[in-house]
Design a protein around this nucleic acid. Structure first.
Lengths: 136, 136
DNA sequence: ACCAAAGTGTAGCTTGTGCTACAAATAGTG
DNA sequence: CACTATTTGTAGCACAAGCTACACTTTGGT
């Protein structure tokens, strides 16, 4: 049964999308860490997100189930093609939103924080508008 | 222990903030429904968010614990002062973001959807920038 | 080669949000 | 008034993400 019912197609994104957000944040972080230091360990992600290593390892297990990540016990994490693709996409979004906010006049630090929150919620249309704004 | 550790003060917002988002969405919806039809029932919220009545009633229980909402069994919901304040704040944010997106050139429908996602993630600074942009 | 330290895994608890199924109250209609 | 339909509550399950405590690698130093 689809939500023919109400005013909110928009409110459909709740639990599922939070999981998606986490996935995007993680693959992005993994890709960054990989670039920066050649390998990415649970502990790197633990520091990056300021959570316990347990949380990291459980999220990695999920991402592996979803085919975004490769992970064997006690070894570093790597991205699958699918994961790398998602990481690239996510980073692109991130960059666009970040640059947009800075061009708008938001300070660099705050822009960085807000971009992380906002990037998961901008539609393609809005992203395109931002892209255009950035090059103007 | 504060996150002295890592690169992410920004990543501190996870579970707690999702709960906060829900709170904001709910008080805002309640306030709107109250304005529109004088009373707000579990069933109104059920329709509004396209979730089961169970989910609504459990979230309402939490909001009551947090002092945002008043609710007795089988009776309509009302907002406490604190809840009303949060609703007003939330709606203001919402309006600013919405108008901003529309002024930017995003279509009304998409602006509405994106605003709902974004409003919970804009800092005061960014909001102020948007406010200024809107009046330009 | 060993032992300690650091890193990672697993068990098991918490909270928030989602659900279905069933029970109880309220509202509406004959 | 009684009976049904609608609304709301409760029980109990799932799953994501947070945690601590404890066990087990892996790494590094002597």
């Amino acid at each position: 049964m689809k939500p023919t019912t109400s005013s909110s197609a928009s409110h459909q994104r709740t639990r599922k999308d939070h999981a998606t957000e986490a996935a995007e944040d993680y693959v992005e972080a993994i890709d960054d860490i990989l670039s920066a230091k050649g390998e990415c360990r649970v502990d790197d992600l633990r520091k990056h997100f300021s959570v316990s290593h347990v949380t990291v390892s459980r999220i990695l297990a999920r991402l592996q189930r979803e085919g975004l990540v490769r992970k064997e016990a006690y070894r570093p994490v790597s991205l699958t093609k699918k994961g790398k693709r998602l990481a690239d996409q996510s980073r692109e979004r991130h960059q666009i939103v970040l640059e947009f906010l800075k061009k708008l006049g938001v300070s660099a630090e705050v822009a960085e924080m807000d971009a992380e929150g906002i990037e998961h919620h901008v539609s393609e249309e809005t992203l395109e508008v931002m892209r255009r704004f950035n090059t103007k």
